[in-house]
Design a protein around this nucleic acid. Structure first.
Lengths: 154, 154
DNA sequence: TTCTATTGCGCAATCT
DNA sequence: TAGATTGCGCAATAGA
């Protein structure tokens, strides 16, 4: 992850650079691999071909038994790692779906509660009026109870 | 994506299958590449080395100008595709974070509404009692009003 | 059929 | 030292 950010040369632009030498050299060149030729043309059967005593540490000959074992283990590790990566991506997507559903449930609940609240508020106001009417005995010819009211708090 | 599902041998389960032959064969073998040797040992500079007149259609020689152009275009496409893939993964992760926040907000709102509802219900009951007391002037020893009520909707 | 997009793979450099 | 990651290019093949 950080390797790229720390060491590798900018190849994000890529194309042009590669293009210029694409035909001349098979490819790979601006990357790492201090002692790593294209890998396809590497190690032409016949000799080291890379000037002996120059490479830091080829680790082992390509034919080496140890080399193959290392490669094999790494290949397995790579597969494993990639599998995990994909699984993780799928899990994340799944998580999104779950959260979406959860959200819908919560919104529905909010809607319900809001409705209930509204109804109760109306009832409350109505009763409050009734109470007031009772406390105030009807006198004169005034209208008994204009118990109307903008009973809407929502 | 679907290639795997249609043609390639089941390696989604992966590991085990691969493992079985991993050591035996150097590498690459159960996959495609009908005419594609390991690629690392392929075309050792000096000769075709793959028995001339055998391959169905190598498309073009590795040295071919057209071949390099095709490879180059594909390499670009690959980079592009992988970039998209990673971006998508990041977006999905971001989506998860957003949904989580949204959820918290909704839950908080539900908590608030529930509390409001609770308070209002209590008030309502209280007022109902008061109303009943006023309406029913104290007489005898009978209970003034059966104003009870299962005021619980939740 | 051709061209691009995807995907599995192995390699090598790095990271842990 | 070994396993885990990651960028890369290749080849097969899916998709248009």
């Amino acid at each position: 992850m950080s390797r790229q950010l720390k060491l590798s040369p900018p190849d994000q632009t890529g194309v042009s650079v590669i293009q210029s030498q694409a035909h001349a050299t098979p490819l790979l060149s601006a990357h790492r691999a201090p002692a790593g030729p294209p890998a396809r043309l590497r190690r032409p059967p016949g000799g080291k071909a890379v000037s002996p005593g120059k490479m830091k540490k080829p680790h082992a000959d390509k034919d080496s038994d140890e080399y193959r074992q290392r490669r094999e283990r790494n290949n397995l590790a790579v597969k494993k790692s990639r599998m995990r990566s994909k699984q993780k991506a799928m899990d994340t997507q799944q998580r999104v779906n779950e959260l979406k559903e959860e959200n819908e449930r919560l919104e529905a609940k909010i809607k319900l509660l809001s409705k209930e609240l509204s109804v109760l508020k109306d009832l409350f106001l109505e009763h409050a009026h009734n109470l007031a009417d009772n406390v105030q005995p009807p006198a004169d010819g005034a209208s008994p109870a204009p118990n109307n009211g903008s009973a809407n708090g929502q």
